[in-house]
Every structure is written in structure tokens, then in C-alpha cells.
């Protein structure tokens, strides 16, 4: 990419069942980090290993089908129904039609959408938050072992958002998936993270646990903590 360094010296490990939250300001390189992991971007140097194998040696198509990605702008296919959108990866994997449609229905219900009501609609007939949940359902459709969630709940009202976060935690403990979860929302980060990576201008400023984040002294981490309402901060023990 035109010679600029966008991410520099980032390094982290992720175990099954873990959720690493990438926390950082706009433009800090969070999306870029996710793209490197599913090889929609190639690193100019450095390497990424999934399940003990360097992904540069894996077939990118297979890698992507095994990785559940919620892209920041949703990217639903406008000419397909909601149901077809959710069943996309199973379709690419060659699942039989009944099986993938059944899967799509189950997932739509799981993300709080009534598949009977909206399964046949086109994406433009949905609200922003509904579209986002369809994108989440699509990412989960083929039971991926690794999730890349780029602000997956950003367009949701606080109540739905909370429900989705709880769903996410259940999913994680049930399937033991590893997830890299991008958010700008500190409260969300605290709710879903097992560890938090704070990014600043493409650099890993801090890698820590949610508890220890409160005693962080690095500038971006402090700036994020300063956004907490004072009362919440007092209760959190600041």
C-alpha cells in the first residue's frame, strides 16, 4: 500500500475460547489487522499463525471460509434475500440447500430476527441494526473456529447490543471459538474481552486484561478510560 506503514510491530497470541478486543481510535489500524488475519491483505513483513500453521502457506479461500468475518460496513449482497445472505458460506462449501436454509433460519432466530418475517426480504428492506445482525448471522453460518468481528454491534440500540453481547459470550463458551473483536466502545470491550489490545497509530500500545486496564498509564488507554462517565468510573474503582 503506497509504502506507508499502517501497522507496525504488532504481536499477540490467541487461544481457543479467548476474545481479544482491539481497542483504538479511528484510523489506528484495527480493520487492517483483521484483514491480515483472513488474508484479504498480505503483510509486507511478519507472519500470522492459525492452529499452528503459518497462514501464508494456507489456501486463502479455505482460510476465509473457516473464518467468520463481520465486516464493518456489513456488505450484504443487495440482490440476495436475507436467508440467502446468511447461507452464503455454507453455499460456497457445497452444503445441500435444505441444510443451509435450516441453518440460516436457526441463526436468524439466534440473533433475534424472526426468519419467517424477514428471511425473504432483501437487505434494503431492513433497518440498519437488522442488517448488522444479518451480517453477524452470516459470519457464524459455517461454524467457524475463528471469528473476526469488526464493530459487529455498532449499529444496535443499547438493549439489543447488550443481548448480542450476552449471546456472543454464550457462543464463545459453547463452541470454544477464538475471536478478535474490534470496538471503540470501552464498555463493550470490558464486557466481551478476555484480553484487550490497545492500538495507537498502528502500534500496539498495550496488551492487557480487562481488570488491569483500569490501572493503565499509557496515553490511549487513559484517554479511553477518561470517556467513562464519572459515576461508572468511581464504581469501577478509579
Amino acid at each position: 500500500m503506497d509504502g506507508r506503514v499502517i501497522l507496525n510491530r504488532i504481536s499477540f497470541d490467541l487461544e481457543h475460547g479467548e476474545t481479544l478486543v482491539l481497542l483504538g481510535r479511528s484510523g489506528s489500524g484495527k480493520t487492517t489487522a483483521l484483514r491480515l488475519i483472513n488474508r484479504t491483505l498480505e503483510p509486507s513483513s511478519g507472519s500470522i499463525t492459525v492452529d499452528g500453521r503459518n497462514i501464508a502457506q494456507l489456501n486463502p479461500i479455505e482460510l476465509r471460509r473457516k473464518t467468520g468475518y463481520v465486516i464493518q460496513e456489513f456488505g450484504l449482497l443487495p440482490h440476495w434475500t436475507v436467508e440467502q445472505n446468511v447461507a452464503l458460506v455454507p453455499r460456497l462449501l457445497g452444503w445441500p440447500v435444505e441444510k443451509r436454509i435450516a441453518r440460516a433460519h436457526a441463526l436468524l432466530d439466534q440473533v433475534g430476527l424472526d426468519h419467517k418475517e424477514i428471511g425473504q426480504r432483501k437487505p434494503y428492506q431492513l433497518s440498519g441494526g437488522q442488517r448488522q445482525r444479518v451480517a453477524v448471522a452470516r459470519a457464524l453460518a459455517a461454524e467457524p473456529g475463528l471469528l473476526l468481528f469488526d464493530e459487529p454491534f455498532g449499529a444496535l440500540d443499547p438493549v439489543t447490543r447488550h443481548e448480542m453481547q450476552q449471546q456472543f459470550l454464550q457462543l464463545r463458551s459453547r463452541y470454544h471459538v477464538a475471536a478478535v473483536f474490534v470496538t471503540h466502545d470501552l464498555l463493550e470491550a470490558l464486557a466481551v474481552a478476555t484480553r484487550i489490545a490497545v492500538l495507537d497509530c498502528g502500534k500496539l500500545e498495550l496488551l492487557t486484561t480487562p481488570d488491569k486496564l483500569f490501572s493503565a498509564t499509557t496515553p490511549t488507554a487513559k484517554a479511553f478510560l477518561d470517556t467513562l462517565p464519572r459515576e461508572a468510573a468511581r464504581r469501577a474503582g478509579r
Binding site: 484479504t40 456488505g75 450484504l76 443487495p78 460456497l92
Partner: peptide
């Protein structure tokens, strides 16, 4: 649309798909 193409690639479509 860029996000549409982006998502299609990220979900694992081949160039032909």
C-alpha cells in the same frame, strides 16, 4: 459497491464465484 465486493471476497468466494 466496495463493501459488497469486499464481503464476498472475505467470505471466501473464488474470482469466478
Amino acid at each position: 459497491d466496495y463493501p459488497v465486493r469486499d464481503a464476498a471476497v472475505a467470505m471466501g468466494m473464488t474470482d469466478y464465484q
